[in-house]
Simulated scan of single mutants.
Amino acid sequence: MDLQQLFADLADVPWLLTALDLVGVFFFAVSGALLAARKDFDLVGSMALALFAGLGGGFTRDIVLDRGLPASLENPIYLAPPVLVSLLVYVGAIRPNRLNLTITLFDAAGLALFTVSGVMIAHAMGIHPVSVVVVATVGALGGGVLRDIVANEVPSIFDPRGVYVMPAFVGAAVAELVAQRGALNAFTGFLIALLIFTVRMVAYRYQWRLPGAHVTQDKDQLDRLRRLAEQAQAAAARRAARARERTLRPVFGPAEEYEDQVRVEDYDPDTQSITVVDEATRQSVRYHPETGIMDVTDLRTGRTRSYDDPEDDWVADRTTEDDAGPDRTGAGRGADGR
């Protein structure tokens, strides 16, 4: 048997596409169930998020390709992985120590498998090669985007740290080139999926970034952050003064909120510097009343910028040391990187 015939036999495996889809559904479902656990969802919420994550990409792909009833509805076996995964997480059978890293691992595996299966399905339908790449990429991203939106998270495709879309896009392009030569099969598909997974995880580990536009924040938004930080700092200073009068030790914890808009993360009675978190914009603000400097950290990217006073532009633009860490949210870290 020559090499071309071997490739043809490998590509003509009846269960190949279903197997790739099911394994991809499983991995995406695990990422959804783990995210639900991090959000303290109950069992129903965990199953819902696992279903959205596991089946969202296939739904998107099949609808775009007009394949009729999506495969996950036509074949009930697609519902098994999300339900099973949710139960395993719920009973503690899956108990990761590093939750963010584990979610990213399973998400990257699902991304890789759905990219390859999407190319196989779209290519078999005879559409234009460029359309194959687009459909495969959209289908691979669909589950993760739907999962993050439902869980009220910033979708991974918008996180500048650790490129997310490019591994799927490049992998889909490579898979289509291989398919054009009649060599896309179980073996080459696995190698391409492994390539996508590896690039995604290396990008996550080293926080690779694609170039982007450098645009300063809206002045009204900055003025709002400064006003809230100043008001919270003044209130904290008054409470500290009253506590000293009563010889009590002031307590400022993360549960303390100011006007239901910002949360006090840290307050230093000596310097009177305060750190507040604005959940609406996912930003942490470290305000220094003596100098008037306001350090603003984007909790989604870890990037910190120092704002001198309301009439000046940025005076510093830096990335914190913790920026290279695995924690996407930057929770528990002040604007000065602590």
Rank of each mutant, 00 (worst) to 15 (best):
49 L>R: 00
49 L>W: 00
50 A>R: 03
51 L>I: 15
52 F>E: 03
52 F>C: 15
53 A>M: 09
53 A>H: 00
53 A>N: 08
56 G>W: 03
57 G>C: 02
57 G>A: 03
59 F>N: 01
59 F>E: 05
61 R>A: 09
61 R>M: 12
61 R>N: 04
62 D>G: 06
63 I>S: 13
64 V>E: 05
64 V>S: 04
64 V>P: 00
65 L>Y: 06
66 D>E: 14
67 R>P: 04
68 G>I: 06
68 G>R: 02
71 A>S: 07
74 E>N: 15
74 E>F: 05
75 N>S: 09
75 N>Y: 02
80 A>V: 13
81 P>T: 03
81 P>D: 07
81 P>I: 02
83 V>D: 05
83 V>R: 00
84 L>Q: 09
84 L>N: 06
84 L>M: 14
85 V>G: 08
85 V>P: 04
86 S>W: 09
86 S>L: 11
86 S>T: 14
86 S>A: 15
87 L>P: 04
88 L>W: 13
89 V>S: 07
90 Y>I: 04
90 Y>H: 15
92 G>C: 15
92 G>M: 05
94 I>M: 10
95 R>D: 12
95 R>Y: 08
96 P>E: 10
97 N>L: 10
97 N>I: 08
98 R>M: 10
98 R>Q: 14
99 L>E: 12
99 L>Y: 14
99 L>V: 15
99 L>W: 11
101 L>H: 11
101 L>I: 13
101 L>S: 14
102 T>M: 11
103 I>L: 13
103 I>T: 02
104 T>Y: 05
104 T>R: 10
105 L>N: 08
105 L>K: 01
106 F>H: 12
106 F>S: 04
110 G>L: 03
111 L>E: 04
113 L>Q: 03
113 L>S: 10
113 L>D: 06
114 F>M: 11
117 S>I: 10
118 G>D: 03
120 M>G: 12
121 I>P: 00
121 I>K: 06
121 I>R: 02
122 A>C: 15
122 A>H: 05
123 H>N: 12
123 H>V: 04
124 A>H: 11
124 A>C: 14
125 M>H: 14
125 M>N: 13
130 V>S: 11
130 V>R: 09
133 V>T: 07
133 V>E: 00
133 V>K: 01
136 A>W: 02
136 A>Y: 02
136 A>F: 03
136 A>T: 03
137 T>L: 05
138 V>H: 06
138 V>K: 02
139 G>N: 07
139 G>D: 09
140 A>L: 08
140 A>V: 05
141 L>W: 03
141 L>R: 04
141 L>H: 08
142 G>R: 03
142 G>M: 03
143 G>R: 01
144 G>N: 09
144 G>K: 02
144 G>S: 11
145 V>K: 04
146 L>D: 01
146 L>G: 01
147 R>F: 06
148 D>S: 07
149 I>Y: 09
149 I>T: 14
149 I>K: 08
150 V>A: 13
